[in-house]
Design a protein around this nucleic acid. Structure first.
Lengths: 336, 336
DNA sequence: TTGAAAGCGTTACCAA
DNA sequence: TTGGTAACGCTTTCAA
């Protein structure tokens, strides 16, 4: 592959001049520009980004660490980051497939090796301390979907507790009085906070959440089906069901209808996340919108600022998002 | 950030020795290894991948070019490539957001700038010639979902024509006699081949596809709804509907049921792709499985071999995949 | 407006 | 088993 030297030699100029025309540098004669451009085209010359990164000490690459690309939620996150990357003429360096603290750490290390100056990290397994340490090493590192007090100004996160409350309020407004809940068996923060918020708001309104009507399962379609079967098997009645995420909610609806319950006529179901899926279900899912793409854009911009030390405002506050209710068809008033 | 020189100086050895321990090079004394490792740990030293790439002339990076990350189909493709990348300790460099031939070209150029030696490209807009030219420049470049005769041995693709035929055969087996079809308005190869295969198999069995029962729309949920409305508005009867992809098929089912038709009792619907969505719909979608992840893995491995000149078998044949029928609940026998 | 040359952080060859 | 050093392809300063 042709190098800048080849171009210089053939064009009969110095590499410095070639470099100048590549970078639209100042003070180059029109003639040189044209000449060099022609030679570059002839040779099919493409500058070597690695060499460039080495000398300029910047990577024009933004790193993203997420657990799984095939989960639409994370795909949206990556998509958000990608948009700001493209704006900046930067590229996405992606690390996925993370299950343990070690693999998360490893993924981040790879980004550091590439001297990625801007990174958006979704980490649930790494300890606060490990993350804080990383934060000191990489100035453009931003945490998404996680809140750590000591590095609050680098956290872009969603208030899951409030999300649970909003769901409860919606159901309460619809005059429901008996509630069930499906949560995730994986006890990271999110599910327990959502459940906690839901429950506390119910209590505040003078209602109770029967612990026998709380089930935990895999956070996917099948998990929703299985937990709903258990709920039904308990024999207890409920008219409103709050589900950890949309995939489970769709599974729940499916099982409910298979068992002769109409949604929302007999039972109202509310999900969480508002992924694409929720618009594809029948009935269309009422759910809490998790503005993950918007948050990812925010996170990427923040990382960019941090990397460029544009921390003008020297921000110390975090970036908290509140989910919003998206009313569709799976909840309705309880008129029994 | 600490460099190899810092490590060498502090450890009291030469950079050559440090380099050897980093790369598990031969002939290093145990003592040196331990000493150097300790210093590296103390300094939090991380090798610079850019410098490495420059001198070794290889990038340990695999490039992926896809139109859109949020489309589950492409997410699966990226996921497949990612799996083989990880196996090789390589990382994904991702380019998305492609709409025109120019932006596709641009995306590929960025990968070349990074001296990405292994790349899997999903390109629908670039001309055959442009792609062939690229192929000469990058030895590890593989095309996915596209077939170009001159570079057949670098193509991993699906036989869409056969897919259409399989759909037709399935419906024929179920004794259907009147057919409708929803296609994509974007006239790249895939939709027209699917339609063509469908039609030709119908004809072979002595049936006809009424052109008034063929509609074209946006390849998403809404497109499926709109085209189905048009189909219904034509007043013509049909008992079987072949739809371009799963998203449209789900839209179609929704509109059909809203208009009082039961699926599959009154009308059988068959989709294409077998994305996650198809398992989430009610009734669950009968569709043609597009083994995109498997194909992506194949493509990535092929690209790897090509890049390493492991073209041992000096393959000249292409990699053609045939979709397979996934029977679920949206098709049934026509007993009228 | 142009060119020479130093230097970015590594690896790998050649000597010692 | 170790160290010195050229080289990778580029940008950037300094002089001319």
């Amino acid at each position: 592959m042709a190098t800048i030297k080849d171009v210089a030699r053939i064009a009969g100029v110095s590499v410095a001049s070639v470099s100048r025309v590549i970078n639209n540098g100042p003070k180059v004669s029109k003639k040189t520009i044209e000449n060099v451009n022609k030679v570059m085209a002839d040779l099919g010359y493409t500058p070597n980004a690695n060499a460039r990164a080495l000398v300029t000490q910047k990577s024009t690459t933004v790193g993203v660490v997420i657990p799984d690309l095939t989960d639409p939620f994370f795909a949206s996150l990556a998509h958000g980051v990608e948009q700001v990357a493209r704006q900046q003429n930067m590229q996405l360096l992606l690390s996925t497939g993370l299950v343990t603290a070690e693999s998360e750490q490893q993924a981040i290390n790879l980004l550091i090796e590439r001297r990625c100056d801007v990174m958006v990290i979704h980490s649930k397994k790494l300890s606060d301390d490990a993350l804080i340490a990383l934060t000191n090493k990489v100035s453009g590192l931003v945490l998404i979907d996680r809140y750590i007090e000591q590095v609050a100004h680098r956290c872009v996160w969603l208030d899951n507790l409030e999300g649970g409350k909003i769901a409860a309020r919606h159901l309460l407004t619809l005059k429901h009085q008996t509630f069930a809940c499906i949560s995730s068996k994986y006890q990271i923060d999110d599910p327990s906070l959502r459940l906690q918020g839901f429950q506390s708001e119910l209590n505040a309104a003078g209602f109770n959440l029967d612990q026998q009507l709380v089930e935990y399962g895999e956070p996917n379609l099948q998990g929703g089906e299985i937990t709903t079967q258990k709920l039904l098997a308990s024999g207890k009645k409920f008219s409103a069901l709050f589900v950890y995420n949309d995939a489970m909610a769709i599974g729940a609806i499916s099982t409910l209808e298979d068992n002769g319950y109409r949604v929302p006529t007999d039972i109202s179901v509310i999900g969480f996340d508002d992924v694409l899926l929720s618009r594809y279900s029948r009935p269309k899912l009422t759910t809490l919108n998790y503005p993950i793409e918007e948050m990812a854009i925010q996170a990427a911009n923040l990382a960019l600022d941090l990397a460029n030390k544009n921390d003008k405002n020297n921000n110390t506050k975090d970036f908290k998002y509140i989910p919003t209710l998206t009313k569709r068809e799976s909840t309705s008033i309880n008129d029994q």
